[in-house]
Design a protein around this nucleic acid. Structure first.
Length: 1036
RNA sequence: GGGUCGUUAGCUCAGUUGGUAGAGCGUUUCGUUUACACCGAAAAUGUCGGCGGUUCGAGCCCGUCACGACCCACCA
């Protein structure tokens, strides 16, 4: 049965993939013939996600390398798996619960909610795997990993504990983006900044003790605008309600206006007068003297910039809001709190961060107010007290005047200098929760951190000294820039889905092993040595700390608190009661409390940042810390292929973490690619509606077409614009290959035994040499991650060499040749087509595997066929030169025919003039090819061409088409003239260079020789054309 | 504002140590010659963003300007 005219990807691809899987073709070590390993870790997609073009691109590149190395006989592992993706997955499940009208997460409780998430994971977790299979990804699915697999979890916990023990992880306060609607911290990525109309108020902070200074305002030229005595410093703010938490006023050190009062105290003009706090005026580089009044209130707990200033200058940070975004209502009465704060600020009381954080400096009148209501109240109160900055109603900063002056006829005083409070209308970039749509609040909370400064060194060194190479190189600069300025890494997330922190809170344990509630502290899992002395049995094992034995715990806590309460009583301290337990919100052991027992010990409810666990992806998937030779041999991995966007999130952290844990770099090369865009270069997004679903492409054009397109676009550093026309073009390329194979099959050119043929015919020698050249090109390209070079080289070879020329050249030999010619051509063609399949397989695995099976009884499937190593030894220089000449002759005749409008169907004679020996013998051995492809009836030698012929110059001979009846002499003259012009320019340039003595003196010899040779060729050609022109002139 | 990258044919992009510019698509003309119309043959198109410098020679190196993209920080 003859082959179909096209490859039916839709039906063949699933069949072929299934056959590979059944044969275990993707397993680690499959087809390995040498001990060297080659490992790629898949960047784990979100477990509940689905495949988008970025994945398709990323995984195509990985699969190309994987298949290539596997064919080369390396011990290959492509490790697949998925990431639990804390935030994304939790949000998806919450949304689904809401849609179905289920209880909310809070109503459901942690345990039940997590069960739901696991159910969702079971339901949708396989999607992306199946989608990757449609692409042809040859991952070792038997080893598929998940970042919350039990063994992976153990590894994550162990790393946390070890790093805590080494002092690399600590707990501290930090400002986070807080969503008052969901009452949770959210990541920067979940914050949308939207420009919103807002206001900026200007208020006076009176100087302490009625102090005054001379305020001088100058213009840009330094000329004095005005001078006045002031007993206050003016500040501008968009958030008046946070004034209650101010810790200082900052001015720029160079700001002369305030130089006199730096170091003095001023009063926050809000709240009951008898308890107003005094705060210092300090200098910092942050304030911009040209903006607002030049003085900035520093509210460390409620603004990210202020936070940095407060940290630098040791300014206390007072939290004013509760988790819902309302003014705090807890704590002692305002008067006591304010007094205590004042004592701390003046050094009369210890600077105790915990105490400061607990302090509630919201005046009683504002407590419980929503933040926006509180803002109105604060503004009204300050204004009423006369502490707003007043300006004439015509002040340009006011935008529209707030109060229009009454006109005289209206009975008012039409005075332009009517004073009103200065409230500038001002657009502000306001952060909103992308899901809740409420204004995000910076909140000071307890978080866990990795002290990145301590572990960043080896990662930086690895790139600096070349142990890890980042491609493209620009990635290295970005890498340095970030790592050299690295911030502590906040690794705790107020989520439930993820690796819960292995941290319990409880009383401190004194040296004598007795509890000390005076200074409660947290315990990290493995640091429980002290705790363990008190209750050996409390934890069943170092890494199974989640599995609390409640019976033993109960026994322990009874003893523990008996001891504590005894001590507390004698010290006159309060005893621990059941109420204490409930108030502490330490839920882990509340069930025990419910049994009327007490244990003041609870687990931190937060989970680890997803990147903390995915940062351990390389060792975690390979079974660390319990890995053995069968897995450890794949570490360090070979190359990481990932998107540029997660260089910091993931790549850098993997490097730091692997170094911190096992002291090695996780890979030696990082290949960063761009995001895939649509054909206009815009980011694909659902709202834009320009999303291309890779599976739709696979359905329509086949996976191979998509893969080839991806490879072809994968130039280092470029932007990737995906267009359907392009994909279609490469689908056509597959069809072209298919039909070349079909031709071979129809002509008995199949069943190559793999041995390199040793033919006698020039065309056959030539194509073998071309094959050897492209093999080398492909290898070089893949070795240097130039996927586009590999794809383009193969495209040019298969279409431009094999199909356009070799198949055509083979026809006379196959159809009219001698038996010997026919057989050697069949053998050669069978071999060449096989080589095409082998070399194309990494990029187009399906169609090549299908053809491989169609064209012979190969001992192994293509996926496991040996990658060739032949090279220049197969290049026959003489055959190359001969075919190059022949092709240029055919091109010349075809071109002349077309330009002279010779009908394509008309076969014409050709005359050969002035031929040298080389041209004559070359023509003789390829005459049949030329006649067929140039559509000639004859090629005969001649002394002089007949009048009115078309001239074709070649090296070593001039050819002429005697077409006196057909050709247009003027057109031929024009054609020759144009060619001569072009040659003239080239010759001029070459002469210019060669005649320049400095060129000969400084250019390398081969360049000079090449220029000389070129000049000779061009001159010869020009001479032929000139002669032809002269002959044409005779006609007139 | 800080950083990174880009500007090459109508479009999308290659162009690896400086040696005198290419591909695909599109366009135009011709064509069904027994692998393929998802095809074949032929053709046209570039002061390589501007200016200056280094060099015998610059798309490539240096400086500068313009425009654009992206990342980070965003103005109390």
């Amino acid at each position: 049965m003859p082959m179909e005219k096209t490859f039916d990807a839709a039906s063949a691809e699933p069949r072929i993939y299934a056959a590979w899987e059944t044969a275990g073709a993707f397993r680690a070590g499959a087809n390995a013939s040498k001990p060297e390993t080659f490992t790629i870790m898949i960047p784990p997609p979100n477990v509940t996600g689905s495949l988008h073009v970025g994945h398709a691109f990323n995984n195509t590149l990985q699969d190309i390398l994987t298949r290539w190395k596997r064919m080369q006989g390396y011990d290959v592992l492509w490790q697949p798996g998925t990431d639990h993706a804390g935030i994304a997955t939790q949000l998806v499940v919450e949304r689904k619960l809401a849609e179905k009208g289920n209880d909310s997460r809070a109503e459901m409780g942690r345990e039940k909610f997590l069960k739901k998430v696991w159910e969702w994971k079971a339901e949708s977790g396989g999607n992306i795997r199946n989608q990757l299979k449609r692409l042809g990804a040859s991952c070792d699915w038997d080893r598929e990993a998940f970042t919350m697999d039990p063994n992976f979890h153990d590894a994550v916990i162990k790393v946390f504990v070890d790093m805590y023990d080494k002092g690399l992880i600590y707990r501290g306060k930090r400002l986070v983006n807080w969503d008052p609607h969901f009452e949770t911290a959210i990541s920067d990525l979940e914050v949308e900044n939207v420009e919103t109309p807002g206001h900026m108020w200007h208020f006076k902070y009176p100087l302490a003790g009625g102090a005054t200074y001379t305020y001088v305002e100058k213009d840009q030229d330094g000329d004095v605008l005005f001078t006045e005595e002031r007993d206050y410093i003016a500040i501008a703010t968009t958030r008046p309600e946070t004034m209650l938490g101010d810790g200082a006023i900052a001015v720029h050190p160079s700001d002369e206006r305030y130089a006199a009062i730096v170091g003095q105290l001023c009063e926050i003009p809000v709240g009951p007068k008898e308890h107003r706090r005094l705060i210092p005026i300090i200098t910092d580089d942050y304030p911009d003297p040209t903006f607002g009044s030049g003085a900035v209130k520093i509210t460390g707990a409620h603004d990210f910039n202020d936070y940095a200033v407060a940290q630098r200058n040791k300014i206390p940070m007072y939290s004013l809001l509760d988790t819902k975004g309302a003014m705090r209502a807890d704590g002692r009465p305002y008067g006591e709190e304010a007094a205590s704060a004042q004592r701390i600020a003046q050094g009369a009381e210890d600077f105790d961060e915990a105490k400061i954080a607990a302090m509630n400096l919201v005046p009683d009148a504002y407590r419980g107010l929503d933040r926006f209501d509180a803002r109105k109240a604060v503004v009204a109160d300050i204004t009423a007290e006369g502490l707003a900055v007043m300006v004439p109603v015509t002040d340009p900063r006011l935008g529209k005047p707030i109060k229009a002056p009454l006109a005289p006829e209206e009975g008012g005083e039409a005075r332009d200098d009517t004073l009103v409070p200065l409230v500038e209308p001002k657009p502000i970039m306001q952060p909103f929760g992308d899901r809740s749509k409420v204004v995000i609040e910076p909140m000071l909370t307890d978080q866990w951190f990795v002290d990145t400064a301590k572990i960043v060194g080896p990662a930086l060194d690895a790139v600096r000294n070349g142990d890890v190479r980042i491609m493209p190189e620009s990635g290295e600069k970005v890498f340095y820039h970030w790592l050299e300025n690295i911030e502590p890494w906040c690794i705790s997330r107020r989520l439930w889905w993820g690796h819960q922190l292995p941290v319990w809170y409880g009383p401190a344990i004194a040296d004598d092993g007795e509890p000390d509630f005076g200074n409660p502290k947290h315990f990290c899992g493995a640091s429980f040595a002290a705790v363990k002395n008190l209750a050996e049995a409390y934890y069943s094992g170092k890494f199974q700390i989640e599995e609390l034995d409640f019976e033993k715990a109960k026994a322990w806590q009874a003893k523990f608190f008996e001891s504590y309460n005894r001590k507390a009583q004698s010290a006159g301290k309060a005893l621990v009661s059941d109420d204490d337990i409930k108030a502490s919100k330490l839920f882990e052991l509340e069930k025990i409390a419910g049994q009327n027992t007490i244990l003041r010990l609870g687990r931190d409810p937060d989970v680890l940042d997803t990147w903390f666990s995915s940062g351990l992806w390389p060792i975690g998937t390979l079974g660390w810390p319990n890995w053995d030779d069968s897995t450890q041999k794949y570490f360090p991995t070979s190359v990481l292929i990932t998107g540029q966007d997660i260089l910091f999130f993931w790549v850098a952290r993997m490097m730091m973490m692997q170094q911190a844990v096992v002291g090695e770099n996780p890979f030696h090369t990082v290949y960063l690619h761009q995001l895939v865009r649509d054909e206009k270069g815009e980011k694909m997004s659902k709202t834009r509606g320009n999303v291309i679903d890779p599976l739709d492409i696979v359905d329509e054009y086949g996976a191979d077409a998509l893969r080839f397109t991806m490879a072809q676009m994968a130039a280092l550093g470029g932007v990737l614009k995906l267009s359907e026309d392009r994909i279609k073009g490469y689908r056509n390329f597959g069809t072209k290959l298919w039909n070349a194979a079909r031709f071979a099959e129809m002509n008995g050119a199949t069943h190559s035994d793999g041995a390199i043929p040793t033919p006698t015919a020039t065309v056959n020698k030539w194509i073998i040499g071309e094959t050897a050249k492209v093999r080398a090109e492909v290898d070089t390209a893949l070795e240097t991650y130039r996927f586009n070079d590999a794809a383009n080289a193969l495209y040019a070879f298969v279409w431009g060499k094999v199909c356009d020329w070799y198949v055509e050249f083979s026809k006379p030999l196959l159809l009219d040749g001698t038996d010997t010619e026919k057989h050697e051509t069949q053998r050669t063609m069978a071999w060449v087509i096989d080589q095409c399949l082998i070399l194309l397989h990494p990029i187009m695995p399906f169609i090549t595997e299908e053809l491989w099976a169609t064209l012979g009884d190969h001992p192994k499937p293509l996926i496991h066929t040996d990658w060739p190593t032949y090279g220049d030894e197969l290049v026959d220089v003489a055959a190359m030169a001969e075919m190059t000449w022949t092709i240029s002759l055919i091109d010349g005749i075809r071109s002349a025919r077309a330009q002279m409008n010779v009908p394509a169907g008309l076969k014409i004679p050709v005359l050969m003039l002035d031929a040298d020996d080389s041209a004559r013998t070359t023509l003789a051995s390829n005459e049949a090819l030329v006649m067929r492809l140039a559509r000639l009836v004859s090629i005969s030698p001649a002394q002089t061409p007949p009048k009115g012929s078309v001239t074709i110059p070649t090296a070593g001979a001039t050819f002429a088409l005697p077409l006196a009846d057909i050709i247009d002499v003027a057109a031929e003259k024009a054609r020759l003239g144009k060619a001569l012009d072009k040659l003239g320019k080239e010759i001029g340039g070459l002469n210019g260079r060669l005649n320049n003595p400095k060129f000969a003196a400084s250019a390398p010899e081969d360049i000079v020789a090449e220029a000389r040779a070129n000049l000779a060729l061009r001159a010869d050609e020009a001479a032929q054309l000139t002669a032809a022109l002269e002959r044409l002139a005779e006609i007139d």
